[in-house]
Computed example of a mutant assay.
Amino acid sequence: MTTHPPAFKPVAGNTGLEQVLATVWACLREGAAPGRSPYSIAQLATVSTDGSAKVRYVVLRRVSEDVREITFHTDVRSSKIAEINANPDVALVAADLEKNLQIRLEGRAHVITDGRVKRTAWDASRDHSLVLFRNPLVPGTPIDSPSDGQPTNQTVTRDDGYENFCMVVMSVTSVDWLDLSPDGHERAILVRNGLDWHGSWVAP
């Protein structure tokens, strides 16, 4: 059973922390919805297979507050997949720089490489989002010029590249909310225990 520092209390019933948690999930849902949002693109951090830190941008594709999960799509051949398979502990940060809001998440990730869920996600994706999966080169392959890394213009079918497509699902275990708006800085940390949250206001 997860233990919390003494200052961490159940979020349920604490109006301020409940509002923070609701705002966090609303921002993430906005990021995964059609259209552009400050939260559409987030930075994912992993631990590489040699123990060093790695970070890159990912596009939020699905947010499921009821099960505390965030989903993004990527190439199964990419280094991040090997890193997640070796160490599923990940972190993600999203921000609205105009409003001075930052959301940091920690959790564990797992990779979906086949099955109905993957097929549904592929079929729902727009063609321009699937182009990179059709590239015969593994991401990170050395090339002589940028043009060598572009997919060829050969005729393709809808399912070309499907074998390279995968989904990464992050199960969120903690949230760090930071509001640096001019009218007063606020920060809260929330930690999940099962489907319940405990949290506390902390110094920004």
Rank of each mutant, 00 (worst) to 15 (best):
T15C: 02
G16M: 06
L17C: 04
L17A: 04
L17W: 03
L17Y: 03
L17K: 04
Q19W: 00
V20Y: 03
L21F: 05
L21G: 04
A22W: 00
A22S: 12
T23N: 12
T23C: 02
V24E: 05
W25I: 11
A26R: 13
C27S: 05
C27H: 12
L28T: 03
E30I: 01
A32I: 12
A32E: 10
A32L: 12
A32H: 09
A33N: 09
A33P: 05
P34N: 09
P34I: 07
S37C: 09
S40N: 06
S40R: 13
I41D: 08
I41P: 00
I41N: 08
I41Y: 10
A42Y: 02
A42C: 15
Q43W: 07
Q43S: 14
Q43P: 00
Q43L: 12
L44C: 11
L44M: 15
A45P: 08
A45V: 05
A45G: 15
V47R: 13
T49W: 01
T49K: 08
T49A: 10
G51I: 07
S52R: 14
A53C: 08
A53R: 06
K54Y: 02
K54F: 02
K54M: 05
V55Y: 01
V55C: 12
V55N: 13
V55I: 11
R56D: 00
R56W: 01
V58G: 05
V59L: 14
V59E: 09
L60R: 05
R61E: 04
R61A: 04
R61G: 15
R62N: 10
S64A: 14
E65I: 02
E65Q: 15
D66T: 13
R68M: 12
E69I: 00
E69A: 09
I70H: 07
I70A: 08
I70K: 08
T71K: 03
T71L: 12
